[in-house]
Design a protein around this nucleic acid. Sequence first.
RNA 1: GAGAAUAUAGCUCAGUCGGUAGAGCAUCUGCCUUUUAAGCAGAGGGUCGAAGGUUCGAGUCCUUCUAUUCUCACCA
Length: 488
Amino acid sequence: MQRRYDERLHLMESGVNPYPCQFDVTTFSTDIIEAFRDEEQTPVSVAGRIMTIRKMGKASFFHMQDSKGRIQIYLKKDEVGDAAYSTFKLLDIGDIVGVEGYSFRTKTGEISVHALHFELLSKSLRPIPVAKEKEVEGQKVVYDAFSDKELRYRQRYVDLIVNPEVRDTFIKRSAIVTFMRGFFTGKGWLEVETPILQPIYGGAAARPFTTHHNALDMQLYLRIANELYLKRLIVGGFDGVFEFAKDFRNEGIDRFHNPEFTQVELYVAYKDYNWMMELVEELLYRTALGVNGTHTTSFLGNEISLEPPFRRLTIVDAIKDYCNIDVSGKNESELRSAAKDLGLELDPKIGAGKIIDEIFGEFVEPKLIQPTFITDYPTEMSPLAKEHRSKPGFVERFELIAGGKELCNSFSELNDPVIQRERLEAQAKLRLRGDEEAMVVDEDFLRALEYGMPPCAGLGIGIDRMVMLITGQESIRDVIFFPHLKPE
RNA sequence: GAGAAUAUAGCUCAGUCGGUAGAGCAUCUGCCUUUUAAGCAGAGGGUCGAAGGUUCGAGUCCUUCUAUUCUCACCA
């Protein structure tokens, strides 16, 4: 690396600015290749990073990588001039250069750029771990790729330079979000922004990150969800609102969980959870088709089809199907002994609804590979959902499971302020008993409901998991640019 | 939170029974005007994750620590 620092000085002394201000780019690498005709010499101006170099005496080849891909450049001393050629001879893999010239095809058939003018645009002082590649029977073989996961996550910029499939994943992530945004706004719903710093956190069951506002000398929380704020906006008269939201949960980290993650939440007035299921089917199908060109995806070793309709199953029927147990009408101690028969260890503090959920999570969820709506959860675990119109003790709620993992959560939203208060106060009692994840009573939210919220369907989709599903990545760290790691 | 594994050159990795550190690529010097894992000839590059210990001697054995990876638990 010292050598490159010396080289930077040497270049400056010989009158070459290693960091000029701009360069006029007219074309991208892939566009040159696509537009190429053997009869024509199209003038081009491209810029990018040197990824391979083959220096020969008075002529050289190198590959340059820009934001779209790579292209080979051919450089002859008697065409670019002595000065530029000797500058080139000092350059390294990783340096960023600009080339003007014309496209041509080499003896071996590769479409390339024949350089007429060449300049250094940015000197790279740190060696880049570029892997060599070779085509063997049409297959690309990569030698000694930059693969150390820790380094890849800590220095994502290097990962992105060197591993093109990483860049592709993040381009798809952006396409997924863009597609969804267009889908929602196309229906006439409003994209909004609500507070990340919240005096009372709510809308989910999780432990928060805590921070402090100096001027007000008060404790604030990073939001664990934005649900309660979006519902306030439905009270305020919007028919449909959505927000792509970073949420923060102070919990463990694994390949499905990052302390900060992205959710889109959507609330639509006058609709219920049945309507929302159809919307989710349409959304997932069209997003996959729009981004991947196909409705099938390979996720955690399974082929998954996102073609509607998705299977629908109540949580009670699901447990009946997969465990041969009918949990309906059973009281807490009957459920507890049923769970024990299945070999499930349970916390003695949890109630009937939670036991049903534990059985489901342990024995059913991992088996639901193709997208499946699980519906009608016990009321106890869903304090913000509306009581089922015909099943006492259950709420109108669904989760979408795919690949054995939860992707979405949705309900017909509870809009009776009296029942909502009872539910939240019950949560507060659980909290006093030591349940750190139980919800807190939010008086302002209850006040908003007292003014009247129309019937409403709400939805939350985990964007990171959805990107994993659609891009086939197996760790959340591979769909978040800068996943959380302990400091070096 | 528990268990297992890993940590050696810029990258990917070897390193046998405990005896002064190895390869390929990358880098440097020279030659080379259609190469593509360019080639040929030569060269440099290491606090072996950190700190202790055992030993005449530790990359190698022991202890502790740190980080990462995987699995499990937790995360409705």
